[in-house]
């Protein structure tokens, strides 16, 4: 498998990925419940493209990140990275690891506080390559230059940097092995507006330069609208609407997508949308409502939504999981 020409495959091909966690119940002899953190996600991501995963806390986006980065293996489903099977494949683990890297949300927790920047950056090389010390150093300095850090900072500790600079270091670390895919788990949501703009620019520059594919996880729709090519909106472990960014932002069809868009505050009056107030809160994933998991908060709920879970199907150039999608096309929103 290792000598396959990987360029002809999409960098990620995920089919029906599921991850269940067992949760022990109170009381003796009760069967453990399974928490469906991710309940069937399928997508493909091509080289140089960005797929944004959007949703609120508990929607399964971080679980998806853990599966794609192979920190955990899926309960069910197929995952191919660069055409190589990534589920239960011990043989190609080393090659696969080099292809996918991750950038985290919190720039303060994601860098080892006891290691110098140089050491942090060289760690992936030390584990995965046979480069000698001076080659590693050269590579680290090269990447540092790329993300806008100076040579002098090679010997500093992370606590000497500001949040934005730390995020640059985290990005640099992700790039050390020349990955094809960078999973960015809310990379800018802990940053201030001006620093956020700098970091987003950096990510976009690097994408152009190195032809990276991003799996961009975020709850901020304005950031997503800027950076992504495709969008996947998730609710309670399942994708509810996915497709091209422009298609979805221009005319969202799933009531949850509509509510998300409407709830996002805007500075400019003209971009504000009529409020669709979502009543209630996210139901517990341990005990999801029957039928469509969104029906109790949905403004367009009909009888069928209470009993029959909808399936993902194609409506108006996107995949959507809603019984009433066709009716909503003609809706004024």
């Amino acid at each position: 498998m290792t000598d396959v020409d990987t360029t002809q495959y999409p960098v990620i091909k995920a089919e029906n990925l599921k991850k269940y966690y067992p949760v022990s119940q109170e009381g003796f002899l009760k069967k453990p419940l399974s928490l469906k953190a991710l309940d069937g996600a399928s997508f493909t991501l091509n080289k140089g493209k960005t797929l944004a995963v959007v949703g609120e806390s508990g929607c399964g986006k971080s679980t998806l990140a853990r599966l794609i980065t192979m920190i955990e293996s899926p309960t069910e489903g197929n995952l191919h990275i660069g055409g190589i099977n990534a589920v239960g494949n011990k043989k190609d683990k080393k090659i696969l690891r080099r292809k996918v890297q991750i950038v985290f949300q919190d720039p303060y927790g994601s860098l080892n506080p006891r290691k110098k920047v140089g050491t942090i950056l060289e760690e992936p090389l030390k584990i995965n390559t046979d480069l000698n010390a001076s080659q590693m150093r050269e590579k680290a300095l090269h990447i540092m230059d790329k993300v806008g850090l100076s040579k002098e900072q090679y010997n500093r500790y992370p606590h000497m940097f500001s949040g934005g600079q730390r995020q640059r270091i985290a990005v640099a670390r992700a790039l050390m092995l020349n990955p094809d895919i960078v999973v960015a788990d809310e990379p800018v949501s802990a940053l201030d507006v001006s620093v956020q703009a700098q970091t987003l620019n950096l990510l976009m520059d690097l994408q152009d330069e190195m032809n990276l594919a991003y799996l961009f996880i975020s709850h901020d729709l304005s950031v997503v609208r800027l950076i992504s090519d495709d969008i996947m909106v998730m609710y309670l472990g399942r994708p509810v609407e996915q497709g091209d960014k422009n298609v979805i932002f221009e005319k969202p069809l799933h009531p949850y997508t509509m509510a998300l868009l409407a709830a996002t505050p805007h500075v400019d009056v003209k971009s504000r949308q009529k409020r669709i107030r979502l009543s209630g809160e996210l139901p517990s994933p341990l005990n999801p409502p029957p039928g469509c998991t969104f029906h109790r908060r949905c403004a367009y709920m009909t009888d069928i939504c209470k009993h029959k879970p909808p399936h993902l199907r194609e409506v108006a150039n996107r995949m959507i999981s809603c019984h009433n999608a066709e009716k909503l096309i003609n809706n004024s929103h």
């Binding site: 980065t69 192979m70 920190i71 683990k93 080393k94 690891r97 080099r98 996918v100 890297q101 991750i102 985290f104 949300q105 919190d106 927790g109 994601s110 860098l111 080892n112 506080p113 006891r114 290691k115 760690e123 992936p124 584990i127 995965n128 985290a170 670390r173 992700a174 092995l177």
Partner: peptide, 26 residues
């Protein structure tokens, strides 16, 4: 459970490295 430990794992660090090089100093 901290992110820097996870990111070392994503880089492919083995258990020995994880325990004594990444976690222990902290």
């Amino acid at each position: 459970s901290k992110d820097y430990v996870t990111s070392s794992r994503v880089s492919g660090a083995g258990p020995f490295r994880m325990m004594f090089v990444v976690i222990l100093p902290n």
